[in-house]
């Protein structure tokens, strides 16, 4: 399984997912998944990918961070 790591955040009513080389933007998380899948299909042709999306808590206003320091981390498996 090939591991991939991305930072996930939310800005201007959109989800943004990026690492050093790629950036995906969409209104819904499902669309981000599809964009990643398409990218993997185009780039790798085949393989199983363990993709970890780490949410950047800076998307929350400063005053809220004292109540809970974590939103979510997402792990998706894509097989092509």
């Amino acid at each position: 399984m090939i591991p991939l790591h991305y930072k996930l955040y939310y800005q201007n009513r959109q989800w943004l997912c990026e690492n050093e080389s790629h950036r995906f933007v969409a209104d819904e998380l499902e669309d981000i998944d599809q964009q990643i899948k398409q990218y993997l299909v185009n780039t790798y042709r085949q393989g199983t990918f363990n993709i970890k999306l780490h949410f950047d808590f800076n998307a929350f206003p400063l005053w809220m961070r004292q109540y809970m320091p974590h939103y979510f981390n997402r792990q998706i498996i894509i097989k092509i």
Partner: peptide
């Protein structure tokens, strides 16, 4: 309260605007 609303929103992957309004 706030910590539970953030935790729940995170668990169901809601857009952050929802827990911010609720909080």
């Amino acid at each position: 309260g706030v910590s539970a609303s953030i935790a729940t929103a995170g668990a169901i992957k809601a857009k952050p605007v929802i827990p911010i309004a609720v909080s």
